[in-house]
Amino acid sequence: MNFFIALLVSFLFGLGIYLILNRDIMKIAIGFGIMGHATNIFIVASGILQGEFVPIIITKINEYTTFIFGDDLASGIIAPIIEGTSEAGMYADPLTQALVLTAIVISFATTAVILTLIYHIDKEFETTDVNKLGRMKG
C-alpha cells in the first residue's frame, strides 16, 4: 500500500485516538469522525487492483449524458474512462469502494447516535467533561 497514504491514515488514526482520550466529550465525537475518515481512506486505498481507471465499464459512450457528473468529469478530471471492456487490472478496485460506501453509512449512523447521547449527557450531567462520567464504578 502506498506509503504516504498509509502515513496519512495512521496519522489520522493517532490523532483520532488522542482525541478519543480527550476529556471533552465533543472532542471524542470529533475523534470518531476523524477515525472514521481514516478507516475509509484506508479501505479505499488498500484496494488490490491499483488500476488507472474508474471502475465503470463504458461500452457505448454518449447514449445520454448527465449535466454535472457526466462522462467529462469522470473521464477528464479524475480519471479516464476507457471504451470497451478491458482487463480487470486496469480499474481501481471496485470492491473496496463498495465496502466504503457501507462503512460511511454505518459510521454516519453511529455518529448520529453518539451525538444524541452526548447532547443528553450534557443535559443530565451538566458538563461535557468525560471524567465526570464515573458515577458507576467498582
Partner: peptide, 21 residues
C-alpha cells in the same frame, strides 16, 4: 481524495454525508 483515488461514487456520497453530519 476519493476522487483522486478513482472513486466518484464515494466522492459524491462523502460530500452529501459530510454536509448532513
Amino acid at each position: 481524495l476519493y476522487a483522486y483515488l478513482k472513486a466518484p461514487d464515494l466522492a459524491m456520497t462523502q460530500v452529501c454525508v459530510e454536509t448532513l453530519s
